[in-house]
Amino acid sequence: MTGRDPLAPVTANVTGTRPVPDTRPGRLVLGITLFRPRPDQVERVRTLASAGFAAVIAFDNGGLPAGTADQLARAGVTLLSAGTNLGIAEALNRIAAAARAAGAGTLLLLDQDAEPPADLAAALLAARDRLREAGIPAAVVGPAPGPAQGHKAPAYPPRPGAPERDGLAPVQFLATSGSLIDLDAFARVGPFRGDFFIDGVELEWCFRAWSLGYGCYLARAVAIPHRVGGGTIRAFGITMPRQPLFRMGTYLRNAVYAWRLPHVPLRWKLAQAAYLPLQAGLYWADSGFRPAVLLRLLAAARDGALGRLGPPRGLPEVAPRDRTRALPRDLP
């Protein structure tokens, strides 16, 4: 690592690259996380840069070729990078910090796979405003999960004891991609857990928000497709994403660790205690009952119980920035 400020925009030696512009309080900034994006995903980001947001901030978690960085910079995207894979949680935190420093009041988060409907930002802002008018503090408002062929859509369990209002359903948690974050609430709730790295990040944060009096709400009137994993595993009435082993291990580790957190509801902990062994067993069966897979899953559960968090084993390597072509995408 050099002494360079990781929050400073990456200019990639492009003339005319714009830093995050000054924005008036309450303006909306778009934040996008990147990891080895395909050319079509890069083009989607470039299109979003012209959609009228106060600013578009992307965080490169590794694998973005220099030529692609140039293209994004010319399109007006402020590109942040630390030169290594910091994980989704830290990428989101740095985007939020940059947006907050620029004076933004709200932050719409997307990942590189997201295909948001044209009215997503307007619909979520309107939903946030309805909650404010009703005196309901909300940390995040997100769209309903839409179908994506070959992928399991996430399910957002309802928040017990919190009433639905005007098509806005209180839920235990929401996926970060597609969600509108209130940056004042974010400052009070605190950042996403960087040591969770990638899986369970939004779940822990939303439980923390609820514990501090800030709700998480699903706007039924707008939807966005979600793609998790490389297909699905189905057995015994259970459907779960098929993911690389390091992702499954990180999910299991973080879920076990969450049992230690006081702001995670007991009801959720008990449900997970029953559900996690089933998921691990199905994943192992899907691998062909390979002993090495079982040992990795058991080690992940042990690490969660012992609080051994941080970057997971088996993480794909970050490609050098001077590569001239887009690389295959390893993080589904």
Results as ranks from 00 to 15, higher is better:
residue 43 E to R: 14
residue 44 R to A: 13
residue 44 R to L: 10
residue 46 R to E: 13
residue 48 L to I: 07
residue 50 S to L: 05
residue 51 A to N: 09
residue 54 A to L: 04
residue 56 V to H: 13
residue 57 I to K: 00
residue 57 I to Q: 00
residue 57 I to F: 01
residue 58 A to P: 12
residue 60 D to N: 13
residue 62 G to V: 11
residue 63 G to P: 03
residue 64 L to M: 07
residue 68 T to C: 15
residue 72 L to S: 02
residue 72 L to N: 04
residue 73 A to H: 11
residue 75 A to L: 05
residue 75 A to S: 14
residue 81 S to N: 06
residue 82 A to C: 05
residue 83 G to A: 06
residue 85 N to K: 02
residue 86 L to D: 09
residue 88 I to N: 15
residue 88 I to W: 09
residue 89 A to Q: 06
residue 89 A to H: 07
residue 92 L to A: 02
residue 92 L to K: 04
residue 94 R to I: 01
residue 94 R to W: 12
residue 94 R to Y: 08
residue 100 R to D: 08
residue 100 R to E: 08
residue 101 A to P: 00
residue 102 A to I: 00
residue 104 A to L: 08
residue 105 G to W: 12
residue 107 L to S: 01
residue 109 L to R: 14
residue 109 L to A: 13
residue 109 L to G: 04
residue 109 L to N: 09
residue 113 D to R: 14
residue 113 D to Q: 12
residue 114 A to H: 11
residue 114 A to W: 05
residue 115 E to I: 09
residue 115 E to T: 10
residue 116 P to Q: 14
residue 124 L to P: 02
residue 128 R to C: 07
residue 129 D to S: 13
residue 130 R to K: 08
residue 133 E to Q: 09
residue 135 G to W: 14
residue 138 A to Y: 15
residue 141 V to T: 04
residue 146 G to D: 06
residue 149 Q to Y: 08
residue 151 H to G: 03
residue 154 P to M: 03
residue 155 A to I: 04
residue 156 Y to G: 14
residue 160 P to I: 01
residue 160 P to Y: 01
residue 162 A to V: 12
residue 163 P to M: 03
residue 164 E to G: 06
